[in-house]
């Protein structure tokens, strides 16, 4: 296992470097003179020069890159144009809200997908299976930025059960955003569980178990389920990473004070250091989560390590 972790860590180095380079290059992709664009039309030359200096754009590209990496190694992600304070401080205040939302969504997805996917697999081609498959297709196709407002209309405006936006009312605030974000994941998971459980139920070892007198329910829960869960766990862990990016939209719908909302606010105000830092933190978390999910996969299915 240690060898496997080491190998995966080694594989992560070029990817992480690639992402750092990509984030570093972002500011240089701004058409024309980035400093001029950031300062906006009609800005005084000294302001443009100040921005150029603040971003280090007056230095050679390679020096800029080295400085970028050095500062990053010291945990310095730069200073916000808007507030003048450290961007990492703002990110760390917002980070817990995004993670909370991601967990909320995952909880909703598990709660819906497990029973639905399993029933669907056990009673294949029955009406309940058709309903579950339809739900899965609808769930995948329904954009969160539509489902969210629909939930707001139904449960925050027509029935004032939950707040329309914000994060001030604890668990009540979390319900609608979690449902919004959890639906698509629930749809993906339902399909995954259905296929996975159905495949295992077709295996000879399940038939053997039933032939030897084990009840169908026991055969499913004691034998098939364990193997069926291997791909499901991986998908679940991998999807946690996607939830972080899904949060960008959901946070916008519900004015949820997380990292995604910070990113969009920073883009609107052209606060590029904050934009860069937010993107970097989201992307690095995404890689880390995927790395952990790979390890998890290797733990539940030892064959993976051999590949």
């Amino acid at each position: 296992m240690t060898q496997y972790i080491f190998r995966r860590l080694l594989q992560m180095i070029p990817i992480t470097l690639g992402i750092l380079t990509l984030v570093f290059s972002l500011i240089h992709l701004i058409p024309g003179d980035p400093a001029m664009q950031i300062a906006g039309e009609g800005a005084r030359p000294e302001d443009v020069q100040a921005i150029r200096k603040a971003l280090g754009l007056d230095e050679p590209l390679l020096t800029q890159y080295v400085h970028f990496l050095t500062r990053l190694a010291h945990g310095d992600l730069g200073r916000s144009f808007r507030t003048g304070s450290s961007v990492s401080a703002e990110i760390f205040t917002r980070y817990p809200a995004t993670i909370e939302l991601a967990f909320g969504a995952m909880f909703v997805a598990i709660l819906v997908a497990f029973p639905l996917g399993m029933i669907s697999a056990i009673y294949r081609n029955s009406w309940i299976d058709n309903v579950a498959r339809f739900f899965a297709l609808v769930g995948v196709s329904m954009p969160s930025f539509w489902f969210g407002p629909l939930l707001i209309i139904a449960f925050a405006i027509n029935h004032t059960w939950f707040p329309v936006s914000g994060r001030d009312e604890g668990l009540r605030s979390l319900v609608l955003p979690s449902l919004t974000m959890g639906l698509a994941l629930a749809a993906i998971l339902t399909r995954m569980i259905r296929v996975s459980v159905a495949e295992e139920l077709n295996q000879l070892y399940v038939t053997t178990a039933i032939a030897k007198g084990v009840t169908r329910v026991k055969a499913i829960f004691r034998h098939a389920l364990k193997n069926a869960m291997i791909p499901v766990i991986t998908v679940l862990a991998l999807q946690f990473g996607s939830l972080l990016t899904g949060a960008i939209i959901t946070e916008q719908i519900f004015s949820w004070p997380g990292l995604g909302r910070l990113l969009i606010q920073s883009i609107t105000t052209r606060d590029y250091p904050q934009v860069q830092a937010s993107i970097l933190v989201i992307a690095l978390t995404y890689i880390l989560v995927n790395f952990i999910s790979d390890l998890l996969y290797a733990v539940v299915d030892p064959r993976i390590k051999l590949e």
């Binding site: 990817i15 690639g18 992402i19 990509l22 984030v23 972002l26 500011i27 992709l29 701004i30 058409p31 990473g241 996607s242 972080l244 990016t245 960008i248 990113l263 969009i264 883009i267 590029y272 934009v275 993107i279 989201i282 992307a283 995404y286 890689i287 995927n290």
Partner: peptide, 16 residues
């Protein structure tokens, strides 16, 4: 390794 929509957001953010 870079979440798709995030990269699209980043690109549009800088390109306009």
């Amino acid at each position: 390794a870079f979440p798709g929509i995030l990269l699209a957001i980043a690109l549009v953010a800088v390109l306009g």
